[in-house]
Design a protein around this nucleic acid. Structure first.
Lengths: 304, 304
DNA sequence: AACTTGTTTTTTGCCGTTAAAAAACGTACC
DNA sequence: GGTACGTTTTTTAACGGCAAAAAACAAGTT
């Protein structure tokens, strides 16, 4: 059956809101609550009912509920129970693919994965169909899925497209009118970059988030659904890949921040040539990093 | 349960082979047969067994089966029984989307479509997940799918990418060495274009096939899985779209053939500027055609 | 009339199961 | 040892069903 992670996540979220002291006057209406937490009223009512059972919230009295006590750590549902089946399958699969000794050419067996991840085959199937657009697996009808490998060839093809898309978006960004709100956002992002650079010693893994915010800002200046979709591919690849490859993370990120700053200078100069130069410089070094990491994985982690 | 379309298609295919007179000495071994028809031995045996039941093939005698009679039209399974569930859902959905009065912003209901197409919801779900990469629908978790519409905006975004990819591929094609087999293939394709142009009055719908062969040839010169995948999007869109919009088909195709020929001249000149000019000219007119057709559909077919 | 909460209906997400199809296993023949 | 065919096992494709979550409906309140 369907998992109740939506409810459990919403419940934890409600506890956070109470802790933050936002319900001093009692919670807002069910409808408003549902909108704020992004769930249906059905779920809101389930959350409120549990808050009542646990004596955190008093029963409604003349349409007003009051807070009885401050939530404690053990009121929360554990994190493991708040990740949906879909997320679970995704992370297990990425792990299996990136960390396991899965070699290019391997045939993926739905049934086996289902057993291994303890989910139904349908969940695996749906995931694989969704995942197939990332270009790493390919369907063989009435047979399994072919794993094509997270290989240098994959990285090169990915970056060929990425360069085309990013150059296009960077050029269009530089052509935005001076009063566009994008420039303000870019300045804010520059400030975040500078801040992170000062605190690089301790906060260097926060770069990954900054990186995706930066590239999203550029590419969303003039949106195109196919480019947006492609960025989902990039994000997922980098998300899992960097979770696995921590080597030289600090140096890599420090260098990338400098490249981003130069890239921003280029954009603000509005000079196409310097935009392109800075953009290419950054993407080339990103490609090198990814390639180097794939090679070393091949050499030390996977050879027979 | 699973449909037996694989078997039925294979059976019809076997009848064709017999009619073509290729089994005069009896059929080859089950293994070879399976490889040739692209099915497993299990299916081959089912086919052979039915051929026996219907007295088309005699029982094996000293390892040799012989043909008893020539297959008749009523030996064939009807076409309707040879289309897989997946194909069926695809064509029904495209019809629903393109011909029906489905407006942008409509929420797609899995259950309703399942009932309408008489398939299980899982089949619809899987199709929608696969289809979502075409950028026309978007998932709303725990709710349905949002139909974003086959709108001019969609066509413009599609062509923005198409132009980027095609210019890249055309440039790379023009840079191929003179002894590359691609040039031979291009010449053959040119001949097909000229032939079709001469017989345009009667054979004008054959252009669609020629068009996709031409663009595939160019883009596969230096392959990139993401570009290949994007061409699947283009092919599907054009396949169903032109099935529906027949207006001015002859003139449109005639003009497109001329553009293709100019494009080929550009490629063979190996001059980047002329390649780009011819390529852009063709793509611009293709975009115009699609846009015009979308507009007229909006105006006359769908307005309330 | 817009809002709020209680109740019912519908739809999604997910599992278990079954027939079709593939793959693996076994045996015999040359 | 390789190839051909009979048999068994495994896997995919697709259905029906059930709990979670959303959506629709209903009635009461301000």
């Amino acid at each position: 059956m369907k998992s109740d992670t939506v409810y459990k996540r919403a419940f934890n979220q409600a506890l956070d809101i109470i802790v933050a002291g936002n319900w001093e006057e009692g919670p807002p209406s069910e409808t408003v609550l549902g909108r704020d937490m992004g769930v249906s009223r059905t779920t809101v009512r389930k959350v409120l009912s549990r808050l009542g059972e646990r004596h955190i919230l008093a029963a409604a009295e003349r349409g007003r509920r009051t807070i009885l006590r401050r939530p404690q750590p053990d009121d929360y549902f554990p994190d493991a129970e708040t990740t949906s089946r879909t997320q679970h399958v995704e992370s297990r699969f990425m792990d299996w693919m990136l960390r396991g000794d899965t070699r290019p050419g391997t045939l993926i067996n739905e049934l086996e994965l289902a057993r291994q991840f303890s989910v139904a085959t349908a969940s695996i199937r749906e995931f694989l169909i969704r995942f197939s657009r990332f270009g790493l697996i390919e369907k063989r009808p009435n047979s399994g899925w072919l794993f094509k490998g997270f290989t240098p060839a994959f990285a090169l093809e990915l970056f060929e497209i990425r360069v085309m898309f990013e150059l296009r978006s960077a050029r269009l960004f530089a052509m935005q009118p001076a009063d566009s709100p994008l420039w303000v956002k870019l300045e804010a992002l520059r400030a975040d970059h500078l801040k992170l650079l000062r605190e690089i010693e301790t906060r260097y893994h926060d770069f990954s988030d900054l990186d995706s915010r930066f590239h999203q800002l550029i590419s969303r200046a003039v949106p195109n659904r196919f480019i947006d979709e492609f960025y989902d591919v990039i994000s997922l690849i980098f998300h899992y890949h960097y979770q696995w490859n921590k080597k030289d993370e600090k140096q890599r990120n420090e260098a990338a921040i400098e490249e981003h700053l130069a890239y921003m200078d280029g954009l603000e100069s509005r000079d196409v040539t310097s935009v392109e130069r800075a953009c290419l410089h950054h993407l080339n070094s990103a490609r090198e990093t990814l390639l180097r990491s794939l090679m070393s994985h091949d050499e030390f982690g996977k050879s027979p």
